[in-house]
Design a binder for these strands. Sequence first.
DNA 1: GCGGACTCTCTTTTT
DNA 2: GAGAGTCCGC
Length: 700
Amino acid sequence: MAELNQAQQLAAEAEGGPQLILAGAGTGKTRTIVHRIGHLIAACGIAPHRILAVTFTNKAAAELRARLSLLIGDDGGGVVSGTFHAISLKFLRRYADVLGYPRSFQVVDADDQKALIKRILKNRNIATDRLHPSYLSGWIEHCKHAGLTPEQAPESDWNGLRLHELYAQYQQELMQHERMDFSDLILNAAILMRDHVAIATALRARFDHVLVDEYQDTNPIQHEWLLLLCGEHRNITVVGDDDQSIYGWRGADVSHILDFEQSWAGAGTHRLEENYRSTGAILELANAVICENTGRHEKALKPTREDGDKPEWKVCNDEYDEARQVLSRIERWRSSAYPWSEMAILYRSNRQSLPLEQLFRESNIPYRIIGGVGFFERMEIKDTLAYWALLNCCGDGLQLLRICNKPKRGLGAKGQEQLAAALASSGLRAFEWLDLIASGQVEGIAKKLVPLAELLASVRQDIESHADRGLNMILEASGYLQSLTAMGELEAASRIENIRTLQDYIELSMAQGLTPIEFMDRASLLQSSAEMQDNEQDSDNAVSMMSLHRAKGLEFDCVVLPGIEEGLLPHQRALDEGEEGISEERRLLYVGVTRAREQLLLTSARLRRFFGEIHYPLPSRFIKKLPTNILQQDSFAQVAVSEQQIAGGIGIGARVSHPTFGEGMILGLEGAGEAMRVTVQFKRSGTKQLMLKYAALQVL
DNA sequence: GCGGACTCTCTTTTT
DNA sequence: GAGAGTCCGC
């Protein structure tokens, strides 16, 4: 406890009952949680395995375990930690049968979910311009986040379509495939407790204390989940920061943390405001950014460190120029003895990594990308997992269909439809049906699978206990690896490397004693290969690149935030949504700024390419009004002289004249082609936005 | 059923 | 600009 300041100590040693810890960025939140858990065990005599810590990401759970191990040894002493999803899945593995699911159900990933929705719409002859698949899946998600089953969902009419019925059908088909989607995990776990008293009682009796991290990002169903689980003993500790709520689009509702004291009468409240992470100058910028938001707990982070170097803002010509500037700054940091691993580039959208990657690769700067296309979403990984699941008798129909024609076995779209029908009418689980096929007792389309089925059966017999080795044999003997080579040497090599990585991971998991189903659970909840490394001490010495969302909870000595522009941060989608969306974008910038300990660079580009179109964004509203004593801007940033004078001399900085508004200077260009808009500051008539097409501007 | 060529679409963030 | 979806000839 000597390591804690007074506020942290009070929070850590608070007695049972509901406790709210409002912890600003960098105020020692994790340390406080870890010590609170230690206190519960050591001083209150609570058994470690009766403490549940709910985190937001798997990585955070792993980190918590690591820090607990340091404090109390013994691998954290058996404290249970995991995400809402992972813990829900554990509950469901025990009790899913009461909901009509087999306990061996699997989780669908985003791709398969999308495919299922598309198929439903196609079968019903609903055109995508009448109901867009993503609109339907978004609507269903929304219901699930609100805790509503198809029966409870509001009757909703969209272009004459009854969305709640489509929701019901979607759920029914999922159940037929013995699958749940991500949101189902939490909703169904809550339903278990909501509707089944005996199960609720059993689960409630399981834990004496529940701690929740990143509480500002919980949505209503997670809130209900917690109420159901802790409503009786009321031993719940939540930690969070309303200024870091960045998951509104996932149904997160800041009011849960703002109203915690109302929902849990008698709650203790603790505020951690002393920031140990960042220099004074960085905190000054952070405070200046976030204080523009309304509807928040009024507060400011208090620095404990010296002022340090001023954060800087650079305006670049385009995204490649931006990448170059970032790179040169990173090399400068490197030469002042910061290691690569202490530098991060945090962007709004994963797509922004492309030019950076290119340049970093050319310049031989080590980097690693976290997120983006998830490891477990890659085609070859899903294929391999499907083979593996079928080999280990837990593969389902979706997995069989996935690989039935990989490599080619003469089963096209038609054949696969027949196959699905044949499987359904057999009434068997996919792997049971394959056994039947191997024994040669089937007719029709299934005959095409005889070689595959025989192969699976023989390999399974050969190597009883070495499923991982069997996988390799299957991939070889089935011709799957061979079929990858057909895609080109380079492509195949990287895919095969991914498969090897997966194989190593399977081997590791098997060595840890996981059952095949447990392994599939693990794989379906992880999404990056980085998360497969258990001890996440980034020993690999590389610059990190990831989205701002991913960066939550992390910290680095040196941080670059590229793309601080209107349309990117705030993102165009948020701009379309209005005030609430923009506040969330501002919080996103705040999260980015507060990741930095010592060095911070913000950049924006005057020209940026989107989907092959050229855009001329304006600097982000979040920073453009900040004084230079908070955010340093070089003269280059202030006098915007365009180097790309686009056709006719229209470009940023160009002097123009307009028939009615008179003379002025172009400040910004947005959009492309016909839709391009210009922002012009006129000498007499002020600043105006005009459609370039109609504006009849003359370049002076 | 398959492969190639073509068109069309979709572009935020994640468990 | 990339990936998915579609069409068409074999």
